[in-house]
Amino acid sequence: MNIFRLAGDVCHLVAIIILLLKIWRSRSCAGISGKSQVLFAIVFTTRYLDLFTVFISPYNTIMKVVFLALSYATVYLIYMRFRNTFNSENDSFRLEFLLVPVIGLSFLENYAFTPLEILWTFSIFLESVAIMPQLFMITKTGEAESITTHYLFFLGLYRALYIANWVWRYHTEGFFDQIAVVSGVVQTIFYIDFFYLYVTKVLRGRGKMTLP
């Protein structure tokens, strides 16, 4: 464990909690892509199956359980509790465009051809594109509430900190997880454009982020 990874995990947790609180407090999931949240729930489910096979540390186990619980709670709020506020017509990203290539790639490129490893690889590849329905939705409607942009900012920060963590681990431990690093870098690139808009529009004070 190093400071970048810990900070990255904390940002990830903060992002998820921001989203959950936004939905809970406003009693609305307007502007949130339910599809992205379903993808994140699938990501955590397929990645954390090793909860049943290996024990790494109390921190590792607790965080995994928390991420799983919060991601399912988010999906529940969007599709069950507050489904009448969900803009399904704007959440129109075609998931098969992500799922088919990701499933194919995880069978082709993995560390071992075993069910758990293929599912782990699938989760890594899927996480790298899971935010796309949300970004697509913002592009389609042309705006995002500032709370939604804070969520995206913390999610992007988590990814950037994980890259710092890998640089650190490479130099201190010689650790290099090729699949995670390549997908992680791809994933972080998706946030760069958004970071620019966040800093120039949201932080310079306006309630909503509107696209130029």
């Binding site: 075993t114 963590n165 995670a180």
Partner: peptide, 10 residues
């Protein structure tokens, strides 16, 4: 080499 596919990151 990769060690027994132990994924210690979240």
């Amino acid at each position: 080499e990769y060690q027994d596919e132990l994924h210690d990151e979240l």
